[in-house]
Design a protein around this nucleic acid. Structure first.
Lengths: 254, 254
DNA sequence: TTTGGCCAGTTGTCATGACAATATCAGGTC
DNA sequence: GACCTGATATTGTCATGACAACTGGCCAAA
């Protein structure tokens, strides 16, 4: 009758919830709902069953169901309206930018990533690097410069500085696994990152590395990443070939 | 003794909570805590009082206090660790990118924004526009093209398409208030936006409008915005002078 | 001295219950 | 027919209680 579908889909896919496993219930539920949305089982504009009824059918409390739904709302896939209900957003499927590295991005899109390591050295921190990493000027840092390739085509030139406790990182690891994977394997997990995205004209050096013409446009990203305790872990200045890479950001008003 | 301050600040600033007002309690609490962080009253690295004790002292339940804290964690200002407590992040204050327009951004940074309206017309949707807005190809849309200036210096060239119900928008409103303000005044509130950020070389036309050299680098942003019901409200292709504008994104790993 | 286990502190998850705020819709009244 | 009104449905907010999981430090044993 109205614009949006009124049939609340049955969704009898929740029979296998692990109530004693390590995975939170709300996460199990949100994953299943999200999967249903992305697979088209819950088409755009369709209404979700209301929180109370859904919880009753799954044998879960309303806060648990509510949190599961909220997770998906935060991703921008669902919209809730008081007095109305919860709907799948119209428009195309959106993917939120997550805290991952370019290496992860490329593997997720089924391209074959590889790395040329240009520089791997200990370097005294200059003013800017010291400020970003929260260390004293002149203190040692690990400095690396790499070219990232996807299917053997250069995509990005990446320059990074890390605090001195990472100076032991080996070249082989970086070529094989990407920086964030190496850091994760050393027990460091990124928690917050602050990025600046801009553009500028390429230098001759960068143009050569990226196999593009001199003075052509580059997409740039500066990032400072922090770990669980809020300590700066990495400061990076990256530049990307704009014809091969762009950033996708999904914003949700609260 | 340890790395971080152990003194849990007293914070006797919560005496004026409005329990019957329209503002949620968790929001009142989160605002006060955030203010304390930004003002330096809660310095970087300091520990927050634990959830249970804070709730008891304020006469609030733990879920309410917890939600207040979570709001700030989502902004990247606090970090919680099980078994440890909640700390103010080290590093600089970060500001999350929000769902605002360039006009709002400029007024927030105390620059004086103005607009040159180049085009305001009804236009049949081409394939791409139709797909983005979720309308039929060839159906009427409102097409506008503007130059945004900050302190009389051109910053961006913005081209937008809106569904046909906005065709009545007048030129005077756009020059005076910015697109998003005009839409808000017509009862439309943006809820979700999907943005692609990239870079490319300027055309001669754009270079002239932005008062930069031909073939210099531009920062570009394509956006599709959706309202409360998930319907596409706006599709825009913008390009910015990279020396005057950049995007800031704060990412938080969950 | 070093190692291991125990204990207290803190956040993470989940359940139950209640009331408020808002949107839709049907019906009645002017 | 237009407008008001009330009933209904749904999400928003908040309280209380309980247990699990993780961290760090203390203390005893090897």
């Amino acid at each position: 009758m109205s614009v949006q579908d009124k049939k609340t889909l049955p969704m009898e896919m929740f029979m296998d919830l692990e109530r004693s496993g390590p995975i939170p219930l709300y996460f199990q539920v949100s994953q299943r709902i999200e999967k249903a949305i992305l697979s088209g089982e819950l088409p755009a504009g369709s209404r979700l069953e209301n929180e109370v009824a859904l919880g009753q059918r799954l044998g879960l409390s309303r806060p648990t169901v509510r949190r599961a739904i909220q997770e998906i709302v935060d991703k921008g896939l669902l919209v809730r309206r008081r007095g109305i209900g919860t709907q799948v957003v119209h428009g195309q499927v959106t993917r939120k930018v997550e805290l991952t590295s370019l290496y992860d991005d490329l593997t997720n899109t089924h391209k074959v990533p590889s790395t040329h390591l240009l520089t791997l050295e200990s370097q005294a921190a200059d003013v800017r690097t010291a400020e970003r990493l929260g260390v004293d000027e002149g203190s040692p840092t690990l400095h690396l410069r790499r070219v990232r390739l996807a299917d053997d085509v250069p995509v990005a030139v990446m320059e990074n500085w890390l605090p001195k406790e990472f100076i032991g990182i080996e070249a082989a690891d970086l070529v094989a696994h990407g920086l964030y994977q190496v850091l994760r394997s050393r027990g460091v997990t990124m928690r917050v990152a602050r990025q600046h995205i801009g553009a500028r004209t390429s230098t001759n050096d960068e143009a050569g590395l990226l196999e593009i013409e001199k003075n052509s446009a580059l997409l740039t990203m500066d990032r400072t990443a922090f770990d669980n305790s809020g300590r700066a872990i990495e400061f990076g200045r990256h530049c990307y070939r704009p014809d091969l890479y762009s950033f996708e950001v999904t914003l949700v008003e609260k």
